[in-house]
Amino acid sequence: MSAHPTVTAVITTYDRTEFLGDAVRSVLMQSIRTTEVIVVDDASPTDPAPVLTEFEDRVRLIRLDANSGANAARNAGVRAASGEWVAFLDDDDIWRPDKTEEQFAAMSDGDEAALCGLEQIDGKSPQICPVARVTEAHLRGGNPFCGMSGLIARRDVLLQEPLDETLPNGQDWDIYIRLARRRPLAYAAAPLFARRYGSHSGITLSAQSESVEALEKRTRVIEKHRDWLGETHYRRRLASYLLKYIGKRKNPVRFVLHAMRRAGASATVRHLARKALRRPEFTWPQGHNPL
């Protein structure tokens, strides 16, 4: 890592102009100067340009011609970036002023990426994991770490490993797996960005009302990594996805029977038992390199 790394912040946005200004300001307030800020608008019906006028030439706006999804917007930002490093930020999240500084401090020579802890803007408990490095073993049980607003990675690596634009969900887990298979990711165990929980509640409510057929589309990321996961972890992750929000489903029996057919009885019963006993879905593997 160079003594003075250059960083491009890529902020993806879609029709949330009420939050976008706060996101940009959090980048411009970084203790390590961000080389450039690129806002990539995923063809919003509302032009975000008026919100960005206060930042003048400190922010570059790219508008996609058609709505293509968050990963397409992120890839466009990576291609346009000039920094050695690219750090992502969703338009409704906010970086803490020392976010990039703390992530660089957590890295060793040769590292290609880093993640960090997070907190909720509404004041809920921070989400911090007890690791110094994120390995493949940590990710086989899912992604307990953070969303894309916590990722910083070398631009050349992101060009080699572009974000998967075909996935409807699980994009963060997918890229973390692919990065960890190259080299473990550094982890800054502090809440370095704030997530606006309320703006995600609509997504959660929508997911709760999904049909079995619609839910199947969300398992694409698990199918993609089936060989890497191994059959046991594959079936457990599949059961977890298919039984998500099972307590709030209108026809839970149908979802349970579908999970048994797809993931097997053992993985399905295991997941239901853990939920009944209120045990956490994610457990740290032995020898997980705690702090």
Rank of each mutant, 00 (worst) to 15 (best):
K224C: 15
R74N: 02
A267D: 09
E112L: 14
T135Q: 05
I11F: 10
D164Q: 12
I177S: 02
I128T: 10
E54H: 13
L205R: 15
L158W: 10
A106G: 02
L139W: 08
L159R: 15
L192K: 05
L28N: 13
S31C: 07
L179V: 03
G287M: 04
L64R: 13
T8E: 06
P48Q: 01
E102H: 09
L277I: 04
R154E: 03
L64N: 04
V51H: 04
G117M: 06
S211D: 08
E112W: 08
T8H: 06
Q286D: 15
L238N: 07
R218C: 02
A188V: 09
K124H: 12
P144S: 06
Q286K: 09
P5Q: 05
E210A: 14
G69C: 03
F193R: 05
V256D: 00
L28A: 13
L64Q: 11
R235H: 09
R60M: 07
G83P: 01
H200T: 05
L291N: 14
L291C: 10
N75T: 08
A81G: 08
R182Q: 15
E36Q: 10
H271W: 05
P162W: 09
P280Q: 05
R155L: 04
L205Q: 15
P285T: 04
R218Y: 11
V39H: 01
P97V: 03
F145P: 01
R235D: 00
A49Q: 12
R249I: 07
S26H: 05
